[in-house]
Structures are given as structure tokens and as C-alpha cells.
Nucleic acid binder design. Structure first.
Lengths: 157, 157
DNA sequence: GGTTGATTGTTTCTACGGTTAACAATATAG
DNA sequence: CTATATTGTTAACCGTAGAAACAATCAACC
């Protein structure tokens, strides 16, 4: 409808005038993501697992002999990006690449004993980090948030 | 057909077995952010404004003669990071750096007529992108989501 | 059974967003 | 007037990621 002339006003800045940005989901999503991501890294320390490495390890622990391609699909990233992640985990001794009898292209990923232990410890740390960071949200709110985020994620599939 | 060899999809991983990751706010936040960010860029096109540039332009339009330092603070990034953003906007003819009488260190940022027009157009595009992308969420849900994300943002301040 | 097409892991290149540390110019406080 | 702080800026660097290419391997199929 009547969209006023482009360069109109803009003179005085009333508080709710910035509302544009503040009301956008994307903007708030990004700002929140940056904060949570930074705190995650702080929580896991200088040489701790990066978020994406932690995520990969989680899936490897839970899905024995998962393939890198499959893992990439589940994480929503490219196959090529998984090489560095796997290298990282292998260098730490948390994961090994195992040849798969029957298909010599594939290398199944398996968590070592150390990998499983490290995962469980990291998981504790991550849970503590989230509990601390999200202490302003009630459990119900946190659950709601996760549910809504999943709805958005779903679109990407 | 499916040989039941080692590559077989992980010895029946029950769905709730991955729950670790799926229940973490950070993981879901990141996945959702990636999707929204990618769609934002797609919506604004190859040579369109990047998300951060759009955000900066929005604040410049709404807050006349804002300072780069102030803008950085409001966007939650470093001063140094704003130089490239401002360069971008200036190269497009959307913003000019103006000397401020009284303090020769500062250069106030002002949106040009073209900048204001471009912002309004981009805003329409962005709103359409969000409406499309978030069509699975009811308006109430979207509002709830923004509210919860703001609560997280608040922590960072 | 040999050709065609797809898949897997990988490397290399590129791009982007962002931080840190330094710096010169300028302003402010004591 | 000196010491300190602030502003915009540059340069070096890191982390994440995608795209494109490639060799090895597998599957299809005629």
C-alpha cells in the first residue's frame, strides 16, 4: 500500500524506530549464536574441542562406524569440510578411520576408548556451559526455544 | 541390495540415542543460524548487501550521524571490523563519512538519499525472506522466538 | 565384461567474518 | 604540559565454510 517516499524523514530517532533490526529473527539469531558460540569455546578452553568437532564426535560416539559422507550429511556440511574435523579427532586419538570390508572407498569412523571418555567429559562441560549461560531462561523456555529452532532447521532439509 | 556388512547403518541407533546433540541449545542455534543466514544472502542476491552490512545500514539510517565506534558497540563487533563494512556502504554510495565539528577524530556516518532508498528496498526483501522462511512458525511463535533470543543476547551485554 | 555413471575421501583454492595488536591523530584530565 | 584515552585505520591471523577438481572404487547395464 501507501509506502511513503523513500527518503522521507529519518530525522528524529525515536527508540522504537530501530525496531526494524530488533524485530528481525535473523539478526537476533545471529547475535545469540555469536554469544553462545563464544561461551562454548571459552568453556572448553584454549585447546578444547571446537563446537563442530564436538558435534562430530557426538555423532561418531552414538553411531558406530558412521561414514564421513553420512556424518557430513547429518551435520549439514560438505564432505570436504569433514576431513579437517576428522583429522583433528584422529590427531587427538579420539577417533580412528577404519577400512570397511566390502567397500574400499569408505572409511568408517569409530570412537576410541579415549574418545568416548573425552566426549562424556566434554558433554558435562557443555551442559554446564549451557546451564550457566541460559540461566535466565526457565527450563520450559529453553525447551520452547529448542523446539522453535528445530522447526527452522527442518526447513533446510 | 543391502549387504549386511560393516557399512550397514550403525547397529540400529535408536532415535533418542543422538539426543545429546539434538537437545543442546547451541547446536540447534547454529544450525538454524546457518539456514537463515544462507537464505538471507540468497534473497539479497549475488551483489546484495551482506547481513552485517544490512544491519549497519539500518542503524545508520535510524541514527543520524552515528559514530563508527558507537555503531560497532551496538552491533557487538570490534571497531576495526566496521571499517570494511563502512567502506562497502560508501563504495555503493549509500553512506558518507562526515567530519564532525568539534572532534576531528570522529567521522559521523550519514545515509545518502540512495542509501535510505536502498535500505527500504532491502528491508522489504528481508521481510519477505523471513516471512517465507519462517512460514512454519505462527506469528506468535516467531514473536516468542525473538523474545527468547533477546534474552540470550542480553547476557552478552 | 567392458563402458558409463555415481560415490567416497581428499586436496586446493577461495571467501568471509571476526579478533588482536599496533599506529597516528586527536581529545581530555590532572 | 604531560599523561592518558579515544577514534579510525591497517595488517596479520584464525576459524568456518563452500566450490571444484581428482583418483580410487563401486554399481548398473547392455
Amino acid at each position: 500500500m501507501a509506502h511513503a517516499t523513500a527518503a522521507r524523514q529519518g530525522a528524529q530517532t525515536s527508540p522504537e524506530d530501530h525496531a526494524d533490526l530488533e524485530d528481525l529473527v535473523g539478526y537476533n539469531l545471529k547475535r545469540a549464536y555469536v554469544i553462545v558460540d563464544a561461551d562454548f569455546r571459552r568453556a572448553l578452553g584454549e585447546d578444547g574441542l571446537a563446537p563442530r568437532v564436538f558435534s562430530a564426535l557426538s555423532l561418531i560416539v552414538h553411531i558406530p562406524d558412521i561414514t564421513q559422507s553420512d556424518l557430513a550429511r547429518r551435520l549439514g556440511i560438505e564432505r570436504s569440510g569433514l576431513v579437517a574435523i576428522t583429522d583433528d579427532l584422529e590427531a587427538r586419538g579420539f577417533v580412528i578411520r577404519q577400512p570397511v570390508p566390502g567397500d574400499r572407498r569408505v572409511q568408517a569412523l569409530a570412537a576410541t576408548k579415549a574418545g568416548k571418555a573425552a566426549y562424556l567429559e566434554a558433554l558435562q562441560t557443555v551442559r554446564a556451559h549451557e546451564a550457566r549461560l541460559l540461566s535466565d531462561l526457565s527450563p520450559a523456555e529453553a525447551e520452547t526455544l529448542v523446539g522453535l529452532l528445530r522447526k527452522i532447521r527442518q526447513i533446510g532439509d
